[in-house]
Design a protein around this nucleic acid. Structure first.
Lengths: 262, 262
DNA sequence: ATGGCGAACACACCTAGACGAGTAGCTGAG
DNA sequence: CTCAGCTACTCGTCTAGGTGTGTTCGCCAT
């Protein structure tokens, strides 16, 4: 057993007032930054780190949990701790809902992902009539019931996004919008056919740590935040005709917006 | 000592295969969600939880660290563990750079925050000429040197945002842009005076966990992600005249964008 | 009144074990 | 050759203590 070279991980500074587990985390982080451990590489095992630093295993585990919290590493039971590979990101441009994009038969998600060379899929489709939350109701102008369309998007089998569209029930009931597949151009195209000419969208963006349920449905690693996007679609009469609530794995997305300078 | 009422925190399920520390975290999270502990409230002390559940202190600490990682609670050394208060959020609208807003003498940040009743301030101003990173250089069309304007924004004394503007040096050197206070309307107004009429901005948004340095400068609590926004300003000739790299405390911001449906 | 002191209590960090469970490789029986 | 089982190594969870340090608050002497 060769041990860990000191060029990779150094020694502790007992005079420092920085906690030991933080010093160890610092050195590991530094080694990752310097490329001593590349993406996907296995870190030294807990036991090796215990030997190297002469501390107890709990202290080492504490260090590793710091790095996990930062999203730098993932641990795999029985195998080791690995430098987290950066997944490919999906770029969402602000013109993705432009009318010219609605002509095509397939949804924006499928088209985009295909173009990027990924294998997109949609999953756990659910369409329900339900009572809206206060927030959704307020955004939609206070309908008593709404149609909710829930779906999860996957890229190469990995879930990346969970979205729910809400529409006032009086507007959507009995239309193709209430069908699992609303047809070419998606529900925005159907809304326009129903006489609700779309005027603009408003998007609100937050970032936060995921709730436990979101960790599950999006298969999130520790230390990966979510982007929470709420989009409201307004027709030319100023009525809010749809609210789309989307939770995205933050490591899989870059949002991009064009703003006029006028 | 009255103990903890079982309506607040229940008992463990030894038959469950869910780890004890997760069960405890679940119950605490649930109690917070149900309002049994309000924002700013003190949770039971570690010792009280040890007594209530009959587990060791390390296990309780493990539970609490789960909640800290989720950003739900903060611990204060010597005082206790508290439900993290939600700070007031600052809303950034997509028209914040509209030309009509540039007439006023004060910066967008100050005006907005004042209107919201907060006490804004700016801090650690630094203006330097430097060699750009690859990324910044690429966005600006490859200048060899740039002017960098760094500053930190605070709201009621709390740092919320750290921003750096980069401008091609040939464009900014010797102009008011290189001064600590560029004058009414900010650097965008100065750029237009210099003949670079602004056409549009492009903003890229990511969310991620902060690097250790960012935790420090933004005084971030555990479990608070950052929003990383990179804005590029283009003039009417299509030249990128400025890149602004901003890191925001995600719990302090909601971004809001208006998109045309055309 | 005020300042100093100390007890009580809070979390922060650490140790040194225990057992469990997932993984992978080797080895020997068939 | 195949496959079951053993074994060594991995991380996951938990126990039962220890020391250290920051906060609060009451008491007491000034």
């Amino acid at each position: 057993m060769p041990g860990i070279p000191s060029s990779t991980l150094g020694a502790l500074d007992p005079t420092s007032d920085r906690a030991v587990f933080r010093q160890i985390a610092d050195q590991l982080r530094d080694a990752i930054d310097r490329g001593k451990f590349a993406e996907g590489d296995k870190l030294p095992s807990e036991t090796e780190l215990v030997d190297h630093y002469g501390v107890s295993r709990m202290t080492v585990r504490n260090s590793l949990s710091v790095l996990q919290g930062e999203g730098l590493v993932v641990s795999e039971h029985g195998k080791g701790v690995f430098v987290r590979p950066r997944p490919p990101v999906r770029r969402l441009a602000s013109d993705r809902f432009a009318r010219r994009h609605r002509e095509q038969g397939r949804s924006a998600f499928i088209v985009e992902a295909d173009a990027a060379g990924s294998h997109p899929s949609v999953d756990s489709l659910e369409i329900k009539e339900e009572r809206p939350t206060h927030d959704i109701a307020a955004r939609l102008g206070g309908p008593r019931k709404v149609l909710a369309r829930r779906r999860r998007y996957l890229l190469d089998g990995r879930p990346v996004e969970f979205a729910t569209s809400y529409l006032p029930l009086d507007l959507a009931r009995g239309t193709p919008i209430a069908e699992p597949n609303p047809g070419p151009g998606g529900i925005y195209a159907r809304l326009e056919e129903l006489g609700h000419r779309l005027d603009h969208f408003e998007e609100e963006i937050r970032a936060r740590m995921p709730a436990p349920g979101e960790v599950k449905t999006l298969h999130l690693a520790a230390g990966v935040p979510v982007i929470h996007l709420v989009r409201t679609a307004f027709d030319t009469e100023g009525r809010a005709v749809e609210v789309c609530d989307t939770v995205m794995a933050a490591d899989a997305y870059v949002l991009s917006y064009q703003l006029p300078a006028t």
